[in-house]
Amino acid sequence: MERRNVLGVLGAAILGVSCAGAALAQDYPDRPITLILPWSAGGGSDAVARIVATGLERELGQPVNVVNRTGGNGVVGHQAIASARPDGYTIGLITAEINMMHRLGLTNLTYEAYRPLALINTDPAGIHVSADSDLASAGDLIEAIKGGETLRFSGSGQGSVWHLAMAGLLVRAELDPTAAVWVPSQGAAPAMQELASGGVEVVLSSIPEADAMVSAERAKTIAIMADQPDPKHPEIGTLAGQTGIDWTVASSWRGIVAPAGTPDDVAQRLEAALKVVYDSAEYQDFMDQRGFGLLWADAAGFGEWLADKEKQFGEVMAAAGMTAQ
């Protein structure tokens, strides 16, 4: 079933190249471009998409409209990007969910349906607990689970990247994947509400998502799942530093893609424009002010990133029993 569909996508991609390649030429773009975002207006991804769109508008000399195609935990929007005409006039912002949704049995869509253009951001998972919690480090957390305590985690929906962060933590710590409970929520904000009201013990989310509650002294961040401490929060240790557990794969990230089959010259034009946007003071300042992590990878590097995540996510999801049968 799955293989047949991958073949189908590839077939469509080849067909797309042969049809679309000829008509397009040097004068790209000569009409407005649509940037599809699988998430809703007002969220973090929306802000990033709009900053990128304004930058691209300046670089390409054509309006770039952000279109929110929400729903189905991102499936609807990711599908819409993949099935758009591969002519460079529809691009999209994709997120970490692309490596997970097909394993959850929601769609047959994989990252291979896209032509990667650039990776523009990544945020590691932060481990947040209530301000009056006894857990002071990731080590305490692991010990508590080992001691038989059933900790309740939240942060986003079932089968989301933060859910995977918890599952991977348990798998890599060689604990039973069912030793902790994942409480699904609609996002970081409701999860923080549950944390404050005592409904859950741990929230996994990026650092900026917990910022307001941490500064209100309702929550504290005990560790981040990254190789290096966050430059803005050097006091927060890394998971590996505190426990020796190597698990940094489940980070949220944002990248810009075009549908597979977009002609080379168009893709290169977009990639070059994205590089300028990424380096612009406007983008850098915005990301810094929001506390979002900066990471650049060009089209080739982004492609490798996607393939690498696909493999690592697959291993952990299988080990944690998150994969749909």
Binding site: G72, N73, L106, G157, Q158, P184
Partner: peptide, 9 residues
């Protein structure tokens, strides 16, 4: 839809 807690369509 699948906007339920289980994320199941």
């Amino acid at each position: 839809g699948m906007e339920n807690a289980a994320g199941t369509p």
